[in-house]
Nucleic acid binder design. Sequence first.
DNA 1: AACGCGCCCTGTCCGC
DNA 2: TGCGGACAGGGCGCGT
Length: 274
Amino acid sequence: MPELPEAETIVRDLRARLPGSTVARVRVKHPDILHTGLTPTVLDRRLRGRTFTGVARRGKNVVLELDAGLRIVINLGMTGRVVTSDAVRAGELRHIAVRIELSDGRAVLYDDARRFGDVDLRDEPGWAERDAQLGVEPLSDAFTAELLHALTRTSISPIRNWLLDQRRVAGVGNIYALEALFRAGVRPTRRARTLTRRETAALRDELRAVLQESIDARGTTISDYRDASGEPGNFDRRLRVYDRAGEPCTHCGTEIRRVVLSNRSAFYCRRCQK
DNA sequence: AACGCGCCCTGTCCGC
DNA sequence: TGCGGACAGGGCGCGT
């Protein structure tokens, strides 16, 4: 579910609620969402008494920062939510996998119906390792047209698949990859290395635009995404191709097509996208 | 080495 | 109303 804009929205909400609070204890209901090697006992023991100092985002990951350089790294998978207990009604969350109880009586809750998410705990060097696995932040100054062009030269993958690989560009998922490709006039099936300089420049610009516009709208809610305040996002009304198979293209009226790439749907306008 | 596929798991929707 | 199948915003591990 959540891509960069949804993670960013959650991070901004938590940033207003979490720093300064101290962990009392941690309860894990579904240990299968813990990162490989991490156990409920270790998580509880290492977090007790630690104080939250900040909240950050890296790609699609929500990063809860604590003193002593500790970080809780949360990948939301398809249905993950991170909220503080004071922001939701009792009973609203039906799949709480991890509950981080705070000394002020509140709790940080990780809820995940499908349990595709991942909760990890990292010290400073451990975080550096994870950070290094992720590609460039698309909203950063480092994400230039030059860089995107250079990175795509060696790949024969369809550009949609290429964009989903978090080791290259961090934070782009299926929705925003397809929306950016539509705006840039590039078909999702095009092999990455065949994009012209003009096309990679347009794709870079449109990716940044669509991600920023979605952040401004507090993300996209298809069905169950909610931000850390429990509110749905508003960007779904602005989607031009995602999940619009059979509907007319907003630009030319041609029916939007659906194709399957690597077992995941891709949507495009065959007239507007070359 | 890079790539695509199957799979992880639960919920929802659609056709019969 | 019930049931089976398809599908879902992600990403890992595997075989090629």
